[in-house]
Deep mutational scan, measured.
Amino acid sequence: TGEEYIAVGDFTAQQVGDLTFKKGEILLVIEKKPDGWWIAKDAKGNEGLVPRTYLEPYS
């Protein structure tokens, strides 16, 4: 389980392990790392690192 967040901007993977997403996408945050990069999963089940500055809590 995780917390749902909504993307407030588009993000394109910079390196292997990053997750590309579009503004408005709902992501499930699995782990919040202290460096500001969180592990998240998208609706298709893809998992990767995302920058927390692009996310806001979804309710």
Score class of each variant (00 low, 15 high):
residue 49 L to W: 08
residue 45 G to K: 04
residue 3 E to A: 10
residue 34 P to K: 12
residue 49 L to D: 04
residue 53 T to V: 14
residue 54 Y to N: 07
residue 42 D to T: 05
residue 8 V to C: 05
residue 13 A to C: 05
residue 29 V to N: 00
residue 18 D to N: 14
residue 52 R to A: 15
residue 59 S to V: 13
residue 29 V to Q: 00
residue 21 F to I: 14
residue 25 E to I: 03
residue 12 T to H: 11
residue 30 I to A: 03
residue 10 D to T: 07
residue 43 A to D: 15
residue 12 T to E: 12
residue 23 K to I: 10
residue 52 R to L: 12
residue 58 Y to G: 06
residue 24 G to D: 05
residue 16 V to F: 11
residue 14 Q to V: 12
residue 21 F to Y: 03
residue 35 D to M: 05
residue 32 K to T: 06
residue 26 I to L: 12
residue 24 G to Y: 10
residue 46 N to K: 09
residue 21 F to P: 00
residue 44 K to Y: 08
residue 22 K to E: 07
residue 58 Y to M: 10
residue 22 K to C: 06
residue 33 K to E: 04
residue 5 Y to A: 02
residue 22 K to P: 02
residue 42 D to A: 03
residue 38 W to I: 02
residue 40 A to M: 13
residue 39 I to Y: 10
residue 30 I to H: 04
residue 5 Y to M: 06
residue 5 Y to D: 00
residue 17 G to F: 07
residue 36 G to Q: 05
residue 2 G to M: 13
residue 13 A to F: 03
residue 45 G to R: 04
residue 23 K to C: 05
residue 6 I to D: 01
residue 27 L to I: 08
residue 11 F to R: 10
residue 32 K to G: 02
residue 33 K to N: 14
residue 20 T to S: 14
residue 53 T to R: 11
residue 7 A to T: 11
residue 2 G to W: 08
residue 56 E to F: 10
residue 33 K to Q: 11
residue 12 T to C: 04
residue 43 A to F: 10
residue 36 G to K: 04
residue 7 A to Y: 02
residue 9 G to H: 15
residue 12 T to D: 13
residue 3 E to K: 13
residue 50 V to S: 02
residue 51 P to Q: 10
residue 55 L to G: 00
residue 45 G to E: 05
residue 37 W to V: 08
residue 22 K to D: 04
residue 41 K to V: 12
residue 2 G to L: 15
residue 13 A to T: 05
residue 34 P to Q: 13
residue 56 E to P: 01
residue 6 I to P: 01
residue 1 T to A: 11
residue 8 V to M: 13
residue 43 A to Q: 12
residue 13 A to W: 05
residue 48 G to Y: 02
residue 29 V to S: 01
residue 55 L to Y: 00
residue 6 I to K: 10
residue 43 A to N: 10
residue 26 I to H: 07
residue 38 W to K: 00
residue 34 P to W: 12
residue 5 Y to N: 02
residue 8 V to E: 03
residue 6 I to Q: 08
residue 33 K to M: 06
residue 5 Y to V: 03
residue 25 E to L: 03
residue 25 E to F: 04
residue 6 I to V: 14
residue 59 S to C: 05
residue 19 L to W: 02
residue 15 Q to C: 04
residue 7 A to W: 01
residue 13 A to N: 04
residue 5 Y to R: 02
residue 13 A to G: 12
residue 14 Q to P: 07
residue 41 K to E: 05
residue 44 K to M: 11
residue 27 L to K: 00
residue 58 Y to L: 14
residue 50 V to Y: 01
residue 25 E to V: 06
residue 55 L to I: 10
residue 56 E to S: 13
residue 17 G to S: 09
residue 38 W to R: 01
residue 11 F to C: 03
residue 6 I to W: 06
residue 22 K to V: 14
residue 23 K to R: 14
residue 35 D to T: 08
residue 9 G to N: 15
residue 25 E to N: 10
residue 37 W to M: 12
residue 30 I to M: 12
residue 30 I to D: 02
residue 3 E to V: 12
residue 38 W to T: 01
residue 39 I to A: 06
residue 57 P to N: 07
residue 38 W to C: 03
residue 20 T to F: 04
residue 8 V to F: 04
residue 37 W to Y: 11
residue 27 L to W: 01
residue 54 Y to A: 09
residue 3 E to I: 14
residue 20 T to K: 05
residue 27 L to S: 00
residue 27 L to G: 00
residue 9 G to P: 00
residue 19 L to Y: 01
residue 31 E to G: 09
residue 54 Y to M: 13
residue 2 G to H: 14
residue 19 L to Q: 01
residue 3 E to N: 11
residue 42 D to S: 08
residue 34 P to F: 12
residue 59 S to H: 11
residue 27 L to M: 08
residue 39 I to C: 04
residue 33 K to P: 06
residue 34 P to N: 14
residue 11 F to A: 02
residue 10 D to A: 07
residue 16 V to E: 15
residue 46 N to C: 05
residue 1 T to V: 15
residue 43 A to P: 14
residue 49 L to V: 14
residue 17 G to Q: 07
residue 32 K to W: 07
residue 43 A to K: 14
residue 9 G to E: 14
residue 46 N to D: 09
residue 6 I to Y: 06
residue 36 G to P: 04
residue 24 G to S: 04
residue 19 L to D: 00
residue 21 F to Q: 00
residue 51 P to N: 12
residue 17 G to I: 04
residue 37 W to L: 13
residue 57 P to S: 09
residue 13 A to M: 07
residue 35 D to C: 05
residue 31 E to K: 12
residue 39 I to K: 10
residue 30 I to T: 10
residue 11 F to Q: 03
residue 42 D to F: 01
residue 11 F to H: 09
residue 1 T to L: 13
residue 52 R to P: 12
residue 30 I to S: 07
residue 20 T to Y: 04
residue 57 P to D: 05
residue 34 P to L: 13
residue 33 K to D: 09
residue 50 V to D: 00
residue 29 V to A: 02
residue 42 D to E: 02
residue 29 V to R: 01
residue 59 S to W: 09
residue 36 G to A: 05
residue 55 L to D: 00
residue 44 K to Q: 14
residue 45 G to T: 02
residue 38 W to F: 06
residue 51 P to G: 07
residue 42 D to C: 02
residue 55 L to C: 02
residue 50 V to F: 01
residue 25 E to G: 04
residue 36 G to R: 03
residue 26 I to Y: 05
residue 54 Y to T: 06
residue 28 L to F: 15
residue 56 E to N: 08
residue 16 V to L: 14
residue 2 G to E: 10
residue 53 T to P: 09
residue 54 Y to I: 09
residue 9 G to F: 15
residue 15 Q to E: 12
residue 1 T to D: 13
